[in-house]
Each structure stands twice: as structure tokens, then as C-alpha cells.
Amino acid sequence: MSLPFRFTPKSIIADGRTTQSHIDTIKNWLNATTLPQLQEEFITLFLISCNNDIDATKGTIEGYFKIKKGAPQIFDNCNLDSEELKNIQKVIGIYVAPTRMDNNTAVICAKMMDTNYRHCDIVSAMKLAVMHAHFMQIDDPPNELVIIFDMEGIGFMHLTCLRMSSVISYLKYVQDGVPLKIRDVHILNCNYVFDRAIDLFKMFIKSELMKIVRSYPPGMNMETFRKEWVPSSCLPKEYGGDLPEFDSLISVTAKQLKTMQPFFDEEEKLRNGHNSLFIK
């Protein structure tokens, strides 16, 4: 079983981002575990995300499979033709910037397109976010990731959409299982809802993550934001950026995501077709 990545480990090694020795070390370790045997491309993702730290890479791989196995409602059935994913794409807009920041840093941005809390399915929203994370890595794995979330239109009733167990699983994945190094998380148009959500889940958020979360009030100076944090080349017109309007970027990303369906299908088969009882 082979996942359809569109890059080669040789290209990553040639760029000096990892080494064949590191890849072989993880392959040998996997052979001694009950984890799925991963192709070199997949191993490369984990190594890059962990700065080639072998112990951290092993822990992240274990976390990836353990957490995904424990929360199938988020990580399984990633079918873009399903009704729940069709619906959530009308509610939440996500784009992956076609350009990258310094150090090959990818930028992903999300905001509510439909602010009616009754239409917000948080589990499907998290599933869609996971799918976009995979999408960013299939062609050229980024060294780092910057996340932007615009809270405009989110109110108190959106808190009733949260599902405690699923949000906890998602937070665990972001912190301990995702093969991506998160550089910064920017929360735009922040309000009291963000503070209440942090209060609800703060015991599940590591200090390392909280240190890179930055919140901004409505009416913030976007010029300062563009100079200090995310350049115009990665932002839509609405934020004073050089990219097209948000709606257009969402549409382009959604079409590109559709090409990922074979990957999502094979990735689930890799996980669920493997009788792994490694969970500690």
C-alpha cells in the first residue's frame, strides 16, 4: 500500500532538510514495532516536523496512530462527497496560501462563512482542517506552518457546538501527532468567546502551544500584522494582501483538495487495515 505523495525523499535530502540515515533509522525502528511500516515519504514528513530529532519523531509517529485510532469521528471517512463535509464547506472557508513565507513556511487561513451556530458541526470542521493539513504536504512538505483563524461573526452560542471529547482528541493530535511544525497561531477579531473556549480546554493545552497563540481585537492594524507576522504575499485582499479575495482562494483550495481523495482513502486503509495493538 503506497500513499500518493507527489514529492520524493531524494528531493528533500538534496535540499538538506533530512538525511537518508535519519530515514533508515526510523524504518529500522518501525520494523521492531507493531506500527504500520511507512514509506520513506511519510517518514520524511515526521522527521521534518520534528527537526530530525529521532526520539521526537518516534513519539510523533506513535501519537499519530494512537490518537487517530481513538477518534474515528474526526479522522475516518474523509470523503469530500459526504453530506457532512459538503455542508461544513458552506459554513467554514479555508484556504492554503499558494505562496509561502520564509523558511518554506505554509500559511492556512480559516473563517466562518455562515455564522449561524445551528449550522456549525465542529467535528466535521476539525475533519476538514485535518484534510487541509495533509493537502499542504503532498507536493512540498513545509518546514513550518502558520495558522490564521478569523473569529468575525462567532458568538456565545457557538460554544454550544463544541464537543468536549472530540475537541480534546483534536488538541492532542495538533500537539502530539500531526507531522507539522506549527510556527504561530493568529486569532483575528478575537472576542470573549475565545477566552471562554480557552478556559474550557486550558488543561489540555500545553504551554508550548499557548506561547505561539496570538490574539488580536477587532479593528486591529493589519499593516502592522503584515509587516511583523504574515506578509502581503500570503494574505487576501480583505486583509490588505496581494492575493485574490478570500472567496476565490477558498474555491481554488477546495478544487485542489478534491484531487486528494485517493490519498485520504489510502491513508485510512493504512491505519485501519493494520492490526496494531501498540497503544500504550
Results as ranks from 00 to 15, higher is better:
Phe75Cys: 06
Asp81Pro: 01
Arg183His: 13
Tyr170Glu: 00
Met203Arg: 09
Glu40Cys: 06
Leu85Glu: 09
Met101Gly: 00
Thr115Gln: 08
Thr259Lys: 12
Asp150Gly: 05
Lys111Phe: 04
Asp140Asn: 12
Thr19Val: 03
His132Cys: 15
Gly16Asp: 11
Ile92Pro: 00
Ile26Asn: 00
Val130Glu: 04
Thr115Ile: 15
Ala32Ile: 14
Tyr117Val: 12
His274Ala: 13
Arg17Cys: 00
Met101His: 02
Gly16Leu: 12
Arg226Val: 13
Ser49Phe: 13
Leu159His: 07
Ser2Asp: 15
Pro9Met: 09
Ile205Arg: 12
Ala133Asp: 13
Asn77Met: 09
Asn221Leu: 05
Ile48Val: 03
Met157Phe: 10
Lys58Ala: 07
Val252Ile: 11
Glu228Val: 12
Phe246Asp: 00
Lys58Gly: 03
Gln175Ser: 03
Ile74Glu: 12
Asn79Lys: 11
Arg214Glu: 13
Trp29Met: 04
Val185Thr: 12
Met220Asp: 00
Leu257Ser: 01
Gly177Thr: 09
Phe278Gln: 07
Gly240Glu: 09
Leu162Val: 04
Arg163Val: 11
Phe246Lys: 04
Asp247Glu: 12
Ser166Pro: 01
Leu38Ser: 01
Asn79Asp: 15
Val213Ser: 14
Phe149Thr: 09
Lys181Ala: 03
Asp24Ser: 10
Asn77His: 10
Lys127Arg: 11
Ser276Thr: 14
Leu243Tyr: 08
Asn143Lys: 00
Phe225Thr: 03
Ile250His: 03
Thr253Glu: 08
Ile148Asp: 02
Lys10Ile: 08
Pro231Leu: 10
Tyr64Glu: 03
Thr99Ala: 05
Lys211His: 08
Gln73Ser: 11
Ile92Cys: 03
Met126Val: 14
Met157Trp: 05
Thr19Gln: 03
Tyr117Asn: 04
Phe264Gly: 04
Ile122Gln: 12
Tyr173Gly: 00
Ile61Phe: 13
Met101Ser: 01
Gln256Pro: 02
Pro231Cys: 09
Ala32His: 07
Leu35Ala: 06
Gln37Val: 15
Glu238Met: 10
Glu268Thr: 05
Ile26Asp: 00
Cys50Glu: 15
Leu35Met: 10
Leu47Thr: 02
Leu159Thr: 15
Cys109Leu: 08
Glu144Val: 06
Phe204Glu: 03
Lys255Asp: 14
Lys86Glu: 02
Lys90Cys: 13
Lys58Glu: 04
Arg226Gly: 06
His22Cys: 11
Ile187Val: 15
Ala14Met: 01
Cys161Ala: 15
Ile168Ser: 03
